[in-house]
Each structure stands twice: as C-alpha cells, then as structure tokens.
Design a protein around this nucleic acid. Sequence first.
DNA 1: CTGGTACCAATTTTT
DNA 2: TTGGTACCAG
Length: 720
Amino acid sequence: MTSLLDNLNPEQLAAVTLPPQPALILAGAGSGKTRVLTTRIAWLISTGQTTPHGLLAVTFTNKAAREMLARLSAMLPINTRGMWIGTFHGLCNRLLRAHYRDAGLPETFQILDSADQLAAIKRLLKALNVDDEKYPPRDLQHFINGNKEAGVRADAAEAWDDWTRKKVALYAEYERQCQKEGVVDFAELLLRAYELLTRNEPLRAHYQSRFRHILVDEFQDTNRLQYLWLKLLAGHGGAEPAAVFAVGDDDQSIYAFRGADVGNMRDFEREFAVKSVIRLEQNYRSHGNILDAANAIIANNSRRLGKNLWTEAGAGEPIRLYEALTDMDEARWIVEEIQSLIRDGAARSDIALLYRSNAQSRVLEHQLFSTGIPYRVYGGLRFFERQEIKHALAYLRLIANADDDTAFARVVNFPTRGIGARSLELLADSARTYNTSLYATVPHLAGRPAASLAVFVRLIEDMRQATRDLPLPEVIDHVLEHSGLRAHYRAEREGEERLANLDELLNAGANFISEAEDPTLTGFLAHASLEAGEHQADAGQEAIQLMTVHAAKGLEFDAVFLTGVEEGLFPHENSIQETDGLEEERRLMYVAVTRARKRLYLTLAQSRMLHGQTRYSLKSRFIDEIPPQLIKWLTPRQAAARYYEPSQESAHRTPPRASSVPSRDLGGFRIGQLVRHAKFGEGVIVSAEGSGGDAKVQINFGGAHGIKWLMLAMAKLEAA
DNA sequence: CTGGTACCAATTTTT
DNA sequence: TTGGTACCAG
C-alpha cells in the first residue's frame, strides 16, 4: 500500500492524498501530472474511500484515457473495464446510450464527426435555398458549435440583427434536421447529456450519489459546457457535492481557438471555494537551461496563476540558435545537424522537428527525403476519416439507422448507380414535404428516378436482412462485398491501398468486438466517430518525428528543433489581431520549449517561400525573451547580419533569386534589407514600388507595427 | 456523370 | 506554391 506513494515528491504526495474536497492541481510541464492523477485514483480505491464504480475521470483524448487505464491496471489488481474513465464525449455517449429514451434519441442514434456535420449543414442550406455566399457553411458550423458549447440552444440564442437572426433560425432548422435523422454532432453529445441530467431529477440524483470523486485532466482545455457539465454532475451547491480533483496548467492552454476557456480554472477556484491549490513545479524532463528559458518566456504573460519550473538535473547544454538565409538553408542545416546527432548515437525517434503551421513541413520533408533519413509526419488524415472508410461506414450506418440522411447522401450514388443530382433534388424536396428522411421518402416517389432509388433502398434492406445475426466482422465483410465498394476499388487504377484499408476495417471490427464493452454495430459506429484513429501511433518507430507544436503537447524528445521562429510565423501574424492572441502564442512557445529533454534548437530563416512568394522576416520576439546567456548562436554574428547588405562579407554570396527581383533605384536600399526607422524601429524591406523620388517601400516591422508602406523619400531609413 | 479548368484562400485541431 | 472547391463541356 505505501509502495503506491513511494517516490512521490512532497507536492505530488500532498495532491494524491488530499481529503475529499475540491482541489486544483497546477501541474507544470513534465511534473508528473498523469502519475499524480492515476496514483490519486489508486490511492482512493486502495484506502477504501471509493470503489472503481464510484469515481469518474475525464480526459480530452482517447490516448490520455487509455494511458490512465493502463497505468491504473498496473498499480491495482482491479478490472478497469466498466469504470467511468474516458473522454468527455465518450462518457456522454455512454450516458446517452444508457438513457436514450429519456434523452429523446433513437436507440441507434449516430454520431456525426465534423466533416459529416459540415455535409449536413450544406444539405440543409441547399434544401432551404439559402445563399451560401452570405451564410458560408463553415461559418454556420462554427456558429452552431459555439452556441452549443456555451450551452445555448437555438431558442435561447440572442440576435441583435437580421443576419444573426437568420443564423439562429438556421441553427434551429439544423437541430430539427438532426433530430429527425436521429444523429448528434460532437457538441450535441455534451449538450444533450447536460440537458438530460438537468431535466431528469432522479437520474441526476443517481449519478450524483454514485460519483463521489470526479477527476479532470487538462482542465485548462475545458470549454464552458464541459465546465457546466462537471458542475452539475458534481452536485455543486447541493448538500453533498462530489470531490472534484482538477489537474491542469494555465500556461499550456493553447486551444482557445476551439472554445477552451482558461477562465474555467479561476471560476472553479472561486465557485467551488477551492482551498487546496497545489503547484507541481519540479520538472523531471528537461535540463535547467531549457526550463530557465521556458520560465523567462512565459513570465511575459499577464493573468497567470503563477508557477516556476525547476529541476534537480543540471543546467545542461545551452539553447542553440541558428539563423539561416532561406527556408531551404534552414532545412539543409537541420538535416546535417540531425545526421551528426545520429552519428553520436541518438535514436531517430528521440528527435523532433516542430513547426507552428503544417505548411512548413514540406521543405523539411523534402530535405529529409533526399538525404534518405526516415521520418514520420503527424497530422494527416486518420484511418476513420479516409474516403473509402467513410463510405463503408455510411453503408453500415444506413443499416443501423436508415434515417441518417448524411450517410444516405454519401453513398446513394457511390459506387455510381445512375442516381444524379436531379433525382436527389426531387427526393429532397419530397422529403421536406412529407417531413421524412430521404430513405423513408423513396417509396413516396414516382417516375423513373424512383426506380433506381428503390433499387438502392432494396439493396440496403437486403443487406440489413442478410447481416441481422452475423458477428460484426462478417457484417462488415458482407457490406463491403454487396455494396459494390470492393468491386469499385478493384477496378480503380490506384485502388490497392483503399482495398487494403477496407480489409483493415475488418480487423478494426474484429478488434472492437474482442475489447469493447458494447460489441454491437452501433457501438462500433460510435467508436469510429469518437476515435477516428491515432495521430500519434507508431511512436516507437525509428524515424524523425515531424509535427506542429500543438500536436507535440504532452510529448517529449531528447532533441527538439523548433523551426521558423520568426515574427509573423511564430507568433503567427493572425494572432496579433486576436484578443489575447499573443499570449496564447507565447504559451504555445512555452509548450514547444518544454518538449525538449536535453537539447533545444531554435532555427529561423531570413527569407522563406510562403504562398508562392518570398517573405522576409525578423527573428521572433520570443527569442528576445530568452536570457541571452542561455543561448549559443551557431550562426556567426556577422552572418546573422543580413546577406543582402552591401558589405564585403556578403559580396561573394549569391543572393537567392536576385535575378527575379526587379532592379529599382531605391536609394541604395534593397528588398530584404534590414533597416531602421526612427519611429517603428527595425524592419525588413519586403517589397517596393516605383523608383527614384517616387519609390515606396513595404517594410515588415514585426508584430508591434506590422507591415507598412512608406515613401522612401520621407521615411529617413538607415541601414540597421 | 466524368474530367478539365478557373478561381480562391492560405494557423493551430480533439471529439 | 498548393490544395480544395465550384462550375462547365463532353
């Protein structure tokens, strides 16, 4: 029993053994957060304070939930199956399945992923003849999800102008459509579960008395609705509220753009009158210099809950900084450095290349590829998002729930069976008149298109009959064969991979029934929506790891190359306009830096190809926020000066694409040159117009002043 | 219904 | 530059 608590540091121990009361654990990067969370659960159970049945633990990703379960089984000889440990969406799905009638849903309700939701919205706009220029489907999707995540239904949504009123009306129409089809989107899972518990007193009382302990991971990433859901489930304000154990790090909140609200941490502290705030600041991951840099960067943010990382490990190596001329040079240099790291015995999978935006990966990939270094890029399409898989799932969904119009529309003519846009329009109109689903409307239709539609409906009916009593993998196999999907991809020139993926779907089905708690077709379909597949699989593979900084959250590597550390890129130029955008970028920088265990490289390029044109940028302000003594410049100081400066040093260098820049009389200045302006400070000349006395130059001064056009004659520039 | 082409926009993303 | 989408001809 005590062995459970061995090797915890004092703060971790304090957190794990807190009495049952609201607690907020501020867990810094690499401070053993998951360990504290799982040990807390194990401790609660092994000391008899609760049973596996009496607690609920919630995470954001399936990966985190799985890891928690795995660690828990290693700590305690209990069967974790059936425990309420999972993602917000997974747990809400479970709740809604168990009480589908009370929630007003069909037993086999389907879950729309984001792409399905968008398709459903487009279909709705078409059916209602709405101008999708004025109401872009994407905006509407954002509007609907934003409202749902704030806990606001269409009938409660406020509108001050016609445009918003129309959006609210469309939101209401969308709700109706989903209800009719028996489908729920991701946000709906949460909102529906929340409303179920709000309205159904006995049910609420049941779960409130059952879950006496609620543990929340990554609390800083919760949105408003998730917070309300937790508050409700905890019985906050009641006589015997559950003990909510919230773990998070406000400095690692990087998902505000998708609704995460760090404010929930403060609200939690206040509303739950949290007495125990525990800071986990001892870091077990990185060397001192890296932590010092991270601390220094994040100290520039205001409104922090406050935290400073430290380590017992030594200072370690300095942070290496390399400034290249172009993005290609940057990539070339990185790859050379990687080769030398590998020569020195580094494992490829312990080296990561991080970037702010996905577009940056191309150059890096190109260089790695041509050098023959194995690499892996994270963040592409996931298994259940592939076209052929979505098609197969659509057939399965129709078998489970024929009213699912999104699934219907997806495969009614795939493989092609002569059902064109005309017929579908006709069908959709009819469906509107009868207020039935597309599928159910088919028998009402007359004429030629009706015949081919009827054949399709017949096909689905036959498949449903034939698979009624088959085990899941055989159901899938039957559908693949009889839908014509296999034949279609067999005939396609490059269909081999798709065929292989379809076979993989069979395996997924087989795995599912051997492991799942709900081994039904409906269960499998929910699984496919909620767990689209691993972005972060094959971590053990011997390859260099490439990913965005966002995707790297939670991971760690011996050596990290953070690339493109430039104004405009990181911090991203768009973020400057957003409220608190810069602070979120800084948190992102903090996350990036704290991924490194031993060695951190920051790299940047003076010019970079972006959107088909060359862009010139300055080094990121975040570099200036790192104490200079922690940094080792790998670029000689004079080389860090701009190559296009008319100095002897750079005279022998070939300015890239010099010939493509039209030569103009810019009074001795050149495009790309670093200059100083009396008021705006340092900047790079990005482009120019006119020449001689009329010459105007566009200068990128970085975030504070941005990009400006100036009359050369007036600006009194000097070379910096 | 397929294939071509013209146009546009272009962070970050889990469920 | 790239990728996605939207529209038109065959």
